[in-house]
């Protein structure tokens, strides 16, 4: 059986908000090390990989592997019934067909319980090799989100160029073109505003901005984001969690 407790329901709410626009139904695999999910979006442009280590829960128990086949939008609907600071517990018996969620407000002596039906989901998995990327950029998650939002007013696509001078985002559409360039920098007072670039060779890739904007909904999970790119390969975009990560593999645009 699985029993996993979080001190604040907001932790799971934010994670679900970060993935729900891309995923419909998917399996969450639970074992003694934690919860994991790997799922492709409908168009197979983005792969979401979520890892929630058992250390990230205030209490965690999972004696044997459990697969939770969930509709992510149904999960989001139920989570809306929890207050952000409620204590949240996830429970599922072995071979059960439901996930039980309880939301507790210890001050008000309120306990709500919801049972979510589980599904048998036949899911595709992709084998993602360990990759040394040509360029790695660590920057503020909020700044990335803002930059992409600004450029989406111009075009459906953004081009990202990384070289030793910095990282440049640019877009071109009917009304004109725009770009934002960030130089590498160290901000001693606000470390999350630093921009760190590790490079073995310059890279330039283009991406669809609608998908990118869905990915940056994970910005509420982490102050920084790690962007990794290699020419002609999907980018890896990672938001670190206290124990785990939400990672996106994002297929670039390719010349016909």
């Amino acid at each position: 059986m699985l029993e996993a407790k979080l001190d604040a329901a907001s932790q799971l709410k934010k994670i679900v908000e970060a993935i729900r626009d891309m995923l419909g139904e998917c399996n969450i695999e639970c074992n003694e090390t934690g919860l994991a999910l790997q799922s492709l979006d409908k168009s197979h442009i983005v792969l979401v990989s979520l890892l929630l280590g058992s250390d990230g829960f205030s209490e965690y128990r999972c004696d044997r592997g459990v697969t939770l086949g969930l509709n992510i939008n149904s999960l989001a609907t139920v989570l809306r019934c929890a207050n952000n600071d409620d204590i949240l517990t996830l429970r599922s018996e072995d071979r059960a067909n439901e996930l039980i969620l309880t939301f507790e407000d210890s001050k008000a002596d309120r306990i709500s319980e919801f049972n979510l039906r589980l599904m048998d989901i036949d899911q595709e998995y992709l084998a993602i090799p360990e990759t040394e990327y040509a360029a790695t950029v660590v920057m503020s998650a909020a700044v990335l989100q803002r930059t992409l939002r600004d450029l989406s007013a111009l075009s459906e696509a953004v081009t990202i160029e990384i070289d030793k001078e910095g990282i440049r985002f640019s877009a071109e559409g009917d009304l004109g073109k725009g770009s934002t360039h960030f130089k590498p920098c160290v901000d001693m007072e606000n470390a999350e505003n630093s921009i760190n670039i590790t490079l073995s060779e310059p890279v330039s890739l283009s991406f669809n901005l609608q998908y990118f904007s869905n990915i940056t909904k994970a910005s509420s999970l982490s102050s920084t984001v790690t962007l990794q790119m290699t020419a002609g390969m999907p980018a890896q975009i990672e938001y670190k969690l206290p124990s785990g990560h939400v990672r996106y593999y994002f297929a670039p645009k390719i010349e016909d």
Binding site: S43, I45, L126, A127, E255
Partner: peptide, 14 residues
């Protein structure tokens, strides 16, 4: 023209 390529093009399914 550019188009978005699905991820299977890059990674083998299993």
């Amino acid at each position: 023209h550019k188009h978005q390529d699905p991820l299977e093009r890059f990674y083998n399914g299993h």
